[in-house]
Simulated scan of single mutants.
Amino acid sequence: MTKSLALKIDDAEPVTAPASARIKLSGVPDDRAMLRAAAELTRDLHTPNKRIYWTDMLVSAGIGYGAFAATILAPSWPLALVAGVVAVLALYRASLFIHELTHLKHSLLPNFRLGWNLLVGIPLLVPSFTYEGVHTLHHARTRYGTAEDPEYLPLAMMKPWTLPVFLLAAVLLPVAMLIRFAVLAPLSAVIPSLRRVVVAKYSGLKINPVFERRPPEGELKSQWFWQELGASIFSIALLTLVATGIVPLRDFGIYLAVIAGVAVINQVRTLVAHLWENDGEPLTVTAQYLDSVNVPTPGFMAYLWAPIGLRYHALHHLLPSLPYHALNEAHRRLSDALEEASSYHKANYPTLRGLMHRLAVSTMGAR
Rank of each mutant, 00 (worst) to 15 (best):
D31Y: 07
I63G: 06
W224V: 14
A182L: 09
G66H: 02
A302I: 05
S203R: 04
L167R: 03
Y131G: 06
E219V: 08
I308K: 03
D10H: 13
A287C: 07
K50D: 09
E40R: 07
S20L: 12
A169V: 14
F181S: 00
L79D: 07
R51Q: 14
L79C: 07
K206H: 11
A273E: 14
H103Q: 08
L205Y: 14
A61V: 09
A314R: 03
Y53E: 11
T2S: 15
N278S: 10
P78F: 02
P110V: 13
L239I: 09
R32D: 13
W276N: 01
P154Q: 00
G115E: 04
P192Y: 04
S107E: 11
A337F: 02
D10E: 14
D251I: 02
E340P: 00
K221H: 11
Y344T: 06
W161L: 09
L108F: 05
P323N: 04
T162F: 14
A94D: 10
L45V: 08
E132I: 15
R214L: 08
N266W: 12
A185F: 14
A33P: 05
D251V: 13
A19D: 15
A185P: 01
A347E: 05
T16K: 12
D149F: 05
L359H: 04
R311N: 14
P209W: 12
L194A: 02
L118G: 13
L109C: 03
A330D: 00
P127C: 00
D11F: 13
G115F: 09
A231Y: 03
A156F: 01
Q223P: 00
K24R: 10
P164L: 08
F211R: 07
R51H: 09
H135G: 13
E340M: 15
R367T: 14
A170W: 01
L319N: 04
A12W: 15
L315W: 05
T270G: 11
S362R: 11
W77I: 05
L194R: 07
L241T: 09
V15G: 03
L5P: 07
P154C: 05
L96A: 11
A200N: 06
R353C: 11
L45G: 10
Q267Y: 03
F211V: 02
A61Y: 04
I265F: 14
A21Q: 15
Q288C: 10
F234D: 02
I191A: 07
D31P: 01
D251S: 12
L41Y: 02
L338Y: 00
Q288L: 01
A366P: 03
Y349F: 15
M157R: 13
I246S: 09
A17Y: 15
D149I: 04
L172A: 12
T286D: 08
F181M: 12
H357Q: 09
I246L: 15
L25V: 10
V183T: 08
L167T: 03
P29E: 03
L124N: 04
L81N: 01
A37Q: 02
Q223F: 08
A6I: 06
L119H: 05
E277H: 01
V242H: 04
I259E: 13
Y152F: 14
V210M: 08
